[in-house]
């Protein structure tokens, strides 16, 4: 069999750093109130990847996370949607699978030696296959920053292609870990390589590195998705993750998605937010909109 020609990353436009920051700041200045706010908050719940990625995760903790994913606020008179997915470490996939059975909630698992990705490719592929067979619907893999930062773009592409293949029919999200890529140009290039290799989603961060998701970096990635869509017609999803804890910034991300990619991306199939404590703040704001009184976290479960 002839070897396929080595992948060469296409020229990506350079990112004007100041312009990206200004644009992100401009989009963050919109005022969203009343009906639009309620609509946005409700959608955000359905777009949430409720996440627990700690060394201290236990089956009990994952079970309670799944409970919260199914019924975010049992005490509320409002009919909140369930969240988009629960995101856990590989050993917790069967536990999560069992506790979201019979709902629309998807099980996402990190794999490929999250969060560093520092392992041989066959080990990383092996983990993706195991997670796939354990019943995860979505698999979050990490980009090999080791390869990317040493300029081995063909290797990055080959590795992600292998992970995409290993994931089979499952949704594959590629985590760029933008906090370690240093520049917006690098983010833009990494986004393109991941999409070329067949990623279904690109995701900002593992949540283990600061800075995690920021508005400008998400904007750069959204623009990469837009340009890729115009060029190839393939719709790639976006998932900012890490550091989004309050409803107000989360709404700003929605504004940005709408402005860059349009309404087609404002669905859980195309846009997700990876967070854990954000859910309670969304619920607080929804209760406030419903009753006109500020609510307290004491009435909500931990999270």
């Amino acid at each position: 069999m002839p070897r396929p020609a080595a992948y060469r990353p296409p020229q990506v436009p350079t990112v004007d750093e100041v312009a990206a920051q200004e644009r992100a700041a401009r989009l963050a200045s919109r005022s969203i109130k009343k009906e639009a706010k309620v609509e946005g908050l409700t959608r955000l719940i359905a777009m949430l990847d409720l996440t627990t990625l700690e060394g201290a995760d236990t089956p009990g903790k994952v079970k309670s996370l799944c409970q919260k994913a199914r019924t975010p606020d049992p005490g509320s008179s409002q009919d909140h949607p369930s969240v988009g997915a629960v995101c856990v470490y590989p050993p917790m996939v069967p536990v999560a699978r069992e506790h979201v059975e019979g709902t629309d909630i998807r099980v996402a698992s990190v794999a490929s030696y999250f969060p560093s990705g520092q392992a041989a490719l066959d080990e990383r592929v092996d983990e993706v296959e195991r997670v796939r067979d354990a019943g995860a619907d979505e698999i979050d893999v990490v980009l090999s920053r080791n390869a990317f930062l040493s300029g081995e773009y063909a290797r990055v592409h080959r590795e992600i292609s292998a992970l995409v293949e290993a994931s089979g029919e499952k949704h594959l999200k590629v985590i760029l870990e933008t906090g370690e890529l240093e520049t917006y140009d690098a983010v833009r290039l990494a986004s393109r390589i991941a999409m070329d290799a067949g990623a279904d989603f690109i995701k900002t961060s593992t949540g283990k590195v600061k800075p995690a998701a920021t508005m400008p970096v998400t904007l750069v990635m959204l623009e990469a998705i837009r340009d890729y869509y115009r060029e190839t017609g393939r719709e790639v999803g976006m998932k900012p993750a890490g550091g989004i804890r309050k409803a107000k910034p989360a709404l700003r991300y929605l504004v940005m998605v709408k402005e860059v990619l349009g309404d087609a991306w404002l669905t859980p199939e195309r846009f997700r937010i990876g967070a854990s404590s954000l859910l309670n703040d969304l619920l607080l704001q929804l209760e406030k909109e419903q009753y006109g009184r500020y609510y307290s976290k004491r009435y909500l479960s931990l999270g």
């Binding site: 009184r293 500020y294 307290s296 004491r298």
Partner: peptide, 8 residues
């Protein structure tokens, strides 16, 4: 009114 109604 807001002070009285604030649940926190």
């Amino acid at each position: 009114g807001h002070v009285g109604g604030h649940r926190d």
